[in-house]
């Protein structure tokens, strides 16, 4: 469903991603793991058309989407829940969710909204509250809910567990599994290696803009280099 090959990207003169190759199939949860500053968010934003890659190609659902503007990529069903949530603080929770289906999924807005409220009852309670006044956890739920409103084919989640309490992190990962079972493919960008590998089918390890390791979650959990580097074992 998603095929990335030879992707180079960065900012101005600075190259952050050097020849990234990866792919993701329908129904999969694929994790992209790596520590701070290795280029995870850069990858995500280049897939989504927020930035234009320097070189390489991105294919989504059989079409080349490299260099297309972000709104066309959303229209095709590739939707991200960005790092730092990026909800609209001056709009109500309800309005935030409505804008989730601004470009895609508008015809089913009401029924999708109902589903999102079933998944996140908290958001229904806070429907008329300004999103900027929500707690961090609630904002993360809203960001995910907003992403779901577009009826994504592939949902990219950029560090959804960031800033959440351990209990909420647990809930968040359970929820990602649930979204996946609804038939939405998921690209999970995370630093939380263990928990991500528990729910992901496959994963890529990113270091300084390169994929240094990839495989099924089971393989990676057994990999001694990975254990040393990320788990301190």
């Amino acid at each position: 469903m998603l095929e990335v090959s030879g992707l180079r990207a960065g900012y101005g003169e600075v190259e952050v991603l050097r020849e990234v190759d990866m792919d993701l199939g329908g129904g999969e949860i694929v994790a992209v793991l790596g520590s701070n500053g290795v280029g995870k968010t850069t990858l995500n934003n280049n897939l989504c058309g927020i930035y234009r890659p320097f070189a390489g190609s991105v294919r989504f659902a059989g079409e080349k989407i490299t260099g297309r503007p972000a709104h066309k990529i959303v229209a095709a069903g590739l939707v991200q829940v960005p790092e730092g949530r990026r909800i609209f603080p001056n709009l109500t929770v309800h309005e935030n969710l409505e804008l989730g289906s601004y470009r895609r999924g508008r015809a089913n807005r009401d029924s999708t909204l109902e589903r999102v409220f079933t998944t996140f009852p908290r958001l229904r309670e806070r429907m008329t509250q300004r999103a900027g006044t929500l707690s961090g956890g609630e904002q993360q739920m809203l960001a995910i809910g907003r992403g779901l409103m577009a009826e994504p084919v592939l949902l990219i989640l950029d560090e959804p567990s960031l800033g959440l309490s351990p209990l909420l992190v647990e809930e968040m990962f359970a929820l990602i599994g649930e979204i996946s079972r609804q038939g939405i493919a998921i690209l999970l960008v995370e630093q939380n290696v263990v928990q991500s590998l528990e729910i992901a089918h496959r994963a890529y390890i990113l270091e300084q803009g390169r994929i240094v390791l990839s495989g099924t979650a089971g393989e990676l959990l057994q990999n001694s280099d990975l254990k040393r580097a990320y788990l301190g074992i």
């Binding site: 990529i73 609209f88 508008r106 907003r146």
Partner: peptide, 23 residues
């Protein structure tokens, strides 16, 4: 309207607006 909501969204959160597919 969606246009009005999008205008208010862009006013405060441009990146978030791009993410939901607002041009």
């Amino acid at each position: 309207s969606d246009l009005g909501r999008a205008i208010r969204a862009v006013a405060k959160e441009r990146h978030g607006a791009r993410v939901v597919g607002i041009d």
